[in-house]
Write a protein that binds this DNA or RNA. Structure first.
Lengths: 192, 192
DNA sequence: TCACATTTGGGGCAATTGTCCTAACCTGCT
DNA sequence: AGCAGGTTAGGACAATTGCCCCAAATGTGA
């Protein structure tokens, strides 16, 4: 059965987000699952392997989410706004634990962990998706730069949201980002 | 002598930045100083006490730095640009370890550490300073919001800089932020 | 019944925090 | 010089925790 393995990865995913990778022990993961610590060695040779599995899980889940978004919304701007509003949909989690990707990448960088690059690939998924939508909206040049800019803005809001827990700040920044995206797309339309 | 204590705090400050708070042990701090572990308990009863001292040190150093900046530059915009350019001056450190404040606040939040609020006060120092400069530049309303916005943008750039180590991205974002600040100040000038 | 997959609980080993005790040192006083 | 008191330093030690590994037990399907 792979069900146990999946449950381990799922629980580890949540705990790595809430407590961080280093601060999460085997016991922390085992307890809510009702498993014995030794069981881990059957499914994973080491803690790093669990991390790899968690990152792989996040990569596929994120890709799935972005694929879903591709089919939603009337216009590319609608879909981009959908991305921007993650900050509001996940507000309470972000105020408590920050952005799942940003905090993991930051922690792994400090640990000089080899998986840091794979974690950063999660960012790339978002950048590529945003660039794609911007191009679909008529932004012919510099779409990647604008996409990176949007992602950076989101990350900054997440950091301050975690630091101060200010909902009004989040709402204001989200509105500002949405307006900015709209203006960028409007400016890219061919003169008519 | 307080020299030993100061050296402990100084070394701990650097290590907390480079490796993170939790991942830094007493031994890590003691080794470069040539001290034995037991000695720490004369100066600090616990690791949390060292953290408190490190945060206090950072608060005074940051306040000093901002006070210095107040006397430099011709105009408020010059001084604000000076803040924005920290991202370039500290480029290599930020690409390796992120923003010292942002990463510490994030880590302490995940650990549910009581010192998280004191660490977040470091952000407040920057926000207040930026708001003050914006007001001096003629921004009569919403200066605090603009200051928070600038800080958030900086934080976002720091996160992506750490994730990808892309110097050109940093340079481009810094230029964009400087232009944005200039435009905000220009828009706030009374019509003449 | 047999072979295989899964789970269990324990235990080795290393790292870390925190306590305790002793030795060296400095300084002011007689 | 000699002494007393406080300060600084060093190492031994216990307690805890976490990662990793193993041998045995249990469940499962052919």
């Amino acid at each position: 059965m792979t069900a146990t393995r999946d449950r381990i990865v799922e629980t580890a995913d949540a705990l790595f987000y809430e407590k961080g990778f280093a601060a999460t022990s085997f016991a922390d993961i085992a307890q809510p699952l009702g498993l014995s610590r030794g069981n881990f060695y059957y499914h994973f040779k080491s803690k790093d392997e669990i991390l790899e599995a968690v990152i792989a899980r996040r990569l596929t889940h994120t890709a799935d989410l972005l694929a879903t978004w591709r089919g939603e919304g009337q216009t590319p701007l609608d879909r981009i706004t959908c991305f921007i509003r993650i900050l509001i949909r996940n507000q309470s989690k972000i105020m408590a634990w920050g952005c799942p990707v940003g905090s993991l990448v930051g922690e792994l960088a400090k640990l000089e962990h080899h998986a840091q690059g794979r974690a950063a690939a999660l960012f790339t998924l978002f950048i590529d998706w945003l660039a794609e939508e911007l191009k679909a909206a008529g932004v012919t040049e510099g779409a990647e730069d604008l996409a990176r800019h949007l992602l950076a803005r989101s990350q900054g809001v997440a950091v301050l949201a975690q630091a101060f827990g200010d909902e009004r700040f989040i709402a204001a920044e989200v509105e500002e980002m949405a307006r900015w995206a709209e203006a960028q797309i409007a400016a890219a339309q061919p003169a008519q």
